[in-house]
Design a protein around this nucleic acid. Sequence first.
DNA 1: GCCGGGCGATAAGCGGCGCTTATGATCGCA
DNA 2: TGCGATCATAAGCGCCGCTTATCGCCCGGC
Lengths: 286, 286
Amino acid sequence: MELRQLRYLVTIAETGNLGRAAERLYVSQPALSQTVRALEGELGVRLFDRHPGGVSPTAVGRDVVEAARRTLAAAEGVRAAAARVLRVGFEASGAGDLTSRVRAEFARRHPEARLEPKRYDWGGEAEALRAGLVDVAFVWLPADLTGFAHEVVHREPRVVGLPENHRLAGRAGLTVMDVADEPLMWTERAPREWVDWWAVNPRPDGSAPKWGPTNDNVEEMLDQVADGVAVCFGPASMARYYTRPGLVWVPLVGAEPLRVALAWPAGSANPLVAAFVAVVRELSRP
Amino acid sequence: MELRQLRYLVTIAETGNLGRAAERLYVSQPALSQTVRALEGELGVRLFDRHPGGVSPTAVGRDVVEAARRTLAAAEGVRAAAARVLRVGFEASGAGDLTSRVRAEFARRHPEARLEPKRYDWGGEAEALRAGLVDVAFVWLPADLTGFAHEVVHREPRVVGLPENHRLAGRAGLTVMDVADEPLMWTERAPREWVDWWAVNPRPDGSAPKWGPTNDNVEEMLDQVADGVAVCFGPASMARYYTRPGLVWVPLVGAEPLRVALAWPAGSANPLVAAFVAVVRELSRP
DNA sequence: GCCGGGCGATAAGCGGCGCTTATGATCGCA
DNA sequence: TGCGATCATAAGCGCCGCTTATCGCCCGGC
C-alpha cells in the first residue's frame, strides 16, 4: 500500500468514474484500473462495483476510502511538521482577544513555527476540522465535536447589532424580547442547533424568532444589518473586530454567553497542535 | 512523499543508524541514504544530523518522524477498514459484563466485522492505545487520556482479595483501614497515580499503605494472594472473572468505585471505531 | 602517527513496476 | 442493431529505486 494508491482511491470515489478521475489525476484510465485491482488484491476485498456508467464503492470500499482520506490527512501532517505550520480555524471574531494573545505567545515560544489562521463561514470551522483542512480550531458552541478532543477556552457576552437609526440603537442594553419583533439575520450554512442557539429559539415565552434574511458570513450579515433590513446577534468581540458605517452594537442582556471551544483531532500528526493547545490552555486560565 | 519513505524514516530514527535500519528493512544502506536525501529535499528541511557513529534526528526531524508514525498508523487503519477488524484493548476484567454485552450487540449489528480483544498488563491498555496497538480501549481510571476522545462508560465497586484462611476472609465487607496492616500487592508497571488510587493512598487517616510484593498482571497478583503473601484490591467483576483455589473476595466498603472509560484516538481511520463507540455508549446508558 | 573499522555518501548499472497507447468486452440506449 | 459510454486487458517503454562497488571521513587502538 502506498499513498499514491490512496490518493487515486479517494479521487475515484469522489468522481465515481475512472475516466474523470484519471483526468483529475493527470494519469491514464488504465493506470487507475490497475491500481484498484492491485489494492483490492492486497486488501483482499472488492472495493468498487463496476457498472457501465462508472464505479461505486462497496460497503467496505466506503470505509476504506474514508480511512484512506484520514491517512492522506495524516501525511499532510508530516508536511506540516516539516514546514512548522499550524492551520488554525475560526469564524468571524473567533475567540476574541484570546486569539491575538495566543498568537503572540505562541510566536514567542516557537519562533520557527508559522501560524496560518484560516477563517470560515458560519459553522464552517467545525466542518474544516472534520475535513482535515485545519489542525486545530476555535469552535463556536454549540457544535458537534464528537470524536475530537476539545475544551471550552473562552466565553463572552452577546450583543445585538442594529442599524444606527434604529429606535433601540441608543439603549444601554436589550433583552431578546426587546427585539422580538425585528427580523433577525440567520444562516442556512450552520447546523440547525447553532442557528437556534444564536436566535435564542424558542424565546423565554415560548415564541419563535421572527426570521429575517439569510447570510453566509459576518460581512454579509453586517452589510445587511447596516442597510437596515434586519438585526443580528453576535459575540461582544464582534463589536470590536468588525465595524460598519451605519451599524451600532448594544449589549444583549439575560442571554447566555457564547462559549468557544478549542478543538483538535486527538493524536494529530502535527506536533505543533499540542504546543498550541498548551498555550491556549494557559492563557485562558486566569 | 510515499509510505515507503515514511516507513524507512521511522526505522532509521529507531535504529539511529542507516546500516542497521537497512538490515531491518531488507534493503541496502544506500537506498536509505537516498530516501533520506529525497525526503529532505521534498520537505525542505534537514531531518537527520549525520555523524560518524550514526544519524540523529534534528528537532524538526523528531516531529516529522512522529508525524510519520501517525501516518503509518492511519495506513494500518486502511487495512483494518478492509479487514473489518477492531482491536479492543482492556486489562484484567475490563469493563466487567459490559464488555460481553457490547461484544454480543456489536457482533449482531456488524456480522461482517471481527473484534480482536487484546488484554494488557496493569495500565498497559492506555499505553497500547497511545502506541496505536489497539483502535479503542476500555481504560481503568485514573489514566492520562489527554489527546484521546474518551468517556466514562462503566463503574463498579471494589473488592478485597484475601487468602481463604485469612482471619478477615469471612467478613461481609471490609474498609481500607480493616486491611491497613496487611501487605498490599502493587505494580511497577502502571503510573504512580494509578497505583495510589488502587491502594487508596493516602488513607483516610493520612497514613500510607503497607506495600507488599509487586506483580505485573492479574494472574501473578492472584497467585500471590492465594499463596497468602499479601492482599489485593480489584473491581467487583474481577471476583466473577478470575478465581483461584485458596482465594476469596470481600466487598471493599467506603472506597470510591472503579471508573472505566472507553477511549479512542479521535478521527481514527478505522470506521468500526465509531460503530463500537456507539454500541458501548448505548449499552452503558441505562 | 598510522592504520583499520565503521559510518554515511556517491557512482554506475540494472530491473521491476507503473505508466503509456491501443484495443477489447460489456452494457445501456436510441 | 449499432453507437457511445464505461471499465478491462495487452504490450511496450522509461523512470526510479534498488543493487553492488567504492570513496571519504572520523575515530580509536596500538
